[in-house]
Nucleic acid binder design. Structure first.
Lengths: 403, 403
DNA sequence: CTCATTAAGTCAAGTGTCTTGACTTATTAC
DNA sequence: GTAATAAGTCAAGACACTTGACTTAATGAG
């Protein structure tokens, strides 16, 4: 018997946990399958027709689902399909990048309703906090101008920025990302907005976005390889984003490659940072994105050389991800110019042989994801939506059932 | 509305799911904390005293927990602690290795009660199935001779063998492991024993063992790096073994290393197979384990050379695991001779800098695990125990609540 | 020594959520 | 036209957790 040592145990559950889970399962089923009748839902979730009816009625009252016109499907009474109501909930997503910050407002089904961005002044959090809070406030009020009652249906604010979190940095940090990573961002945003705030790294945000509206939609095991200024992996395992002990799972950019007798982090070889260095350009140039897209389109020789080299490392990364995570698919996404991503994908194939090569595959081993500068902000916003509405273990437990 | 396309949805839950979860939570709390009173359990699980009382009463009736003598802890009525009853449940674990098969019977708390092994004749499953079924039957009847009613309390048979599963092999396969991996082992064992059968790879089994009785006890995020004939990683993520889409997650042995301009699987450089090749010994020699232990103890030069080289690759592997999974700790275990493991651990340190280096760590980044030839069989047996008694998401859902 | 205080645990009634089985409604197939 | 089929509702029932008062048994202050 231990006297003073804290007792560690998982939380129990009760009726409310059951109910909360079943509500989430309904919403998830509608999200994945589009529109379903109560009878469809009952069969799919293994609940009774009556239970489904009660829950759907409640969700309809809450404005989260609505009925469509009845459809005849052979004998029997026609079915009344229900679908998610996009305006049923909203979330704000915030991306904090090196020299820019972006915010979006998205709805329950992941449509971006408002987007706005602002330059981040040098100096890290001390100068940037004001800009960010203003940006968020602006997006929020624009959302309120578009839809009624948006504030009441706002489930939270999701923030995304490059990881890793809580780790001493490498030193070369012209954009003060390290300062941001150590800054009490959650507390500041919570205090400044009054919203429920979540934080994830940009690769995780990209994965969350892909799961809500992209190539990972409806998948339970998928990994997003995110090529941005750095490189990271967003992990969808068992249908949930996996964060690890300290929210740093998937930081593949710090994986070490051995070449020429010394070890180099993947990040130094396959990332936009490495491209900028290869091209000797100024990463702070606001037109860089467009210029690189142009160069990639034109088949610039210097870009081609970098693409060839990076493709070797990305091919290895994909093989490693397949080997360690055994996902249904790997998604290549990033905040890179689209033409560059296309060249990369072309250069990566064919993939290395791996355990992912098996008979009966239906999904490609590698799929392109969103290559949109706004996808990280979208994923950041998808975080709160997912936390509020997706079925997950933690949502059943007693200590997580909130109003 | 989709007409014929199958509807994908997660399963709902009901009272039985709630109850099943709460029972598991109690058992888990007792397993992690040793012995707890009802009031302790109520506080830890956030359930009411009454609910805990009811569940404990039921578990006591089922023979899974029992009360100990009341202890006085200051004012108030003395608390009556409850503990797990080891004889409350049993499981059989089966390890299928290249030239040997081992079986154990373990109880609810992971004590090995019976162990037995047999040589596996060449020829793969066609010749080996009989041997395995006889071995299991023998262990089962010995267990029945030691404890009363063991058959009624047998929750299942767990099998473990080298992975990966369902993948075309490399070709050089003198022990027909590939034939085993393709063989319908689950069906054969189910038919031959009448038990509920599970299958995992040996690294996963080692991780399951470490979680039940070893260095990962009570941890929710841990990775076991398992060095055996091959090398693999067993992943404990969010308190559960992670299997991936096809049960092949963690097969780190197939990760590629680049050296001398060509790529080599980790397995070819840091595994007993590579040691055997380095020493030019016959892997089928039954005394090999003892001989290598001897050589390692004596500081044999050839062994030292291999250890030095393997340590470099293992150091890299640990760094990679920390980078991708962000675990609380990494556990080095394996079916290697103890003296060899000790030499390896000594040679691996100090670890490479990684995101795992952070202020406030309480656990070592690397811990030694069990280095016992029986640990894989133990972990195989721990699988069914865990499936039957540990809290997990799937156990709450309606389609998984069995008698 | 006495008694207020504290804490463990029980009792019995209450509540919330899912289940059951019969019933109604609406359509198709023969 | 009628039987078969399927969606969906109604009302009662079952199950498991919760509530609040109560009992039991110890400590510690006066």
């Amino acid at each position: 018997m231990n006297d003073s040592r804290p007792i560690r145990a998982k939380s129990g559950t009760n009726h409310e946990g059951t109910s909360a889970h079943n509500r989430r399962v309904m919403i998830d089923a509608l999200r994945v399958n589009g529109a379903l009748s109560r009878a469809d839902l009952a069969r799919a979730t293994r609940l009774t027709k009556q239970t489904v009816s009660n829950i759907i009625e409640e969700l309809e009252r809450d404005g989260l689902v609505s009925s469509q016109e009845a459809v005849r499907r052979g004998r029997g009474q026609p079915a009344t399909p229900y679908r998610l109501v996009p305006e049923g909930a909203f979330a704000i997503g915030l991306q904090i990048d090196r020299h820019v910050t972006r915010a979006v407002a998205v709805d329950l089904v992941g449509s971006v309703l408002v987007r706005d961005e602002a330059g981040l002044p040098p100096g890290g959090p001390s100068n940037g906090t004001r800009v960010i809070l203003d940006l968020v406030a602006g997006v929020r009020s624009k959302l309120a101008g578009i839809v009624q009652q948006s504030e009441k249906r706002l489930v939270g604010l999701g923030a995304a920025m490059p990881g890793p979190f809580g780790v001493a940095g490498s030193g070369d940090d012209p954009w003060m990302m390290e300062a941001w990573q150590k800054f009490p961002l959650l507390e500041t945003l919570t205090a400044g907005t009054g919203l429920d705030v979540g934080l994830q790294n940009d690769a995780a945000a990209a994965a969350t976005a892909e799961r809500m509206v992209g190539a990972a939609h409806g998948l339970d095991h998928a990994v997003c390889l995110f090529v941005g200024y750095g490189i990271g992996a967003g992990l969808i395992l068992n249908g949930e984003l996996y964060r690890g002990t300290n929210g740093n799972a998937g930081e593949i950019g710090m994986a070490l490659l051995f070449a020429d007798g010394k070890s180099t982090p993947l990040e130094h070889r396959a990332s936009l940072a490495s491209l900028y260095q290869h091209l000797s350009v100024d990463p702070a140039d606001p037109h860089l994105h467009a210029r690189i897209n142009d160069l990639a389109l034109r088949g610039d020789q210097s870009i081609r050389a970098w693409v060839e080299a990076a493709a070797v490392d990305l091919r290895w990364s994909i093989h490693l991800i397949e080997t360690l995570f055994d996902p249904q698919t790997v998604i290549l996404c990033g905040s890179a110019p689209e033409a560059l991503v296309n060249r990369l994908i072309a250069a990566i194939g064919p993939l290395l042989p791996s355990i992912a090569e098996r008979r009966g595959r239906t999904l490609p081993r590698l799929q392109p994801g969103m290559a949109d500068p706004w996808s990280v902000a979208l994923g950041a916003a998808a975080g709160p939506i997912s936390r509020a509405f997706d079925p997950r273990f933690a949502a059943i437990l007693k200590d997580s059932i909130q109003s």
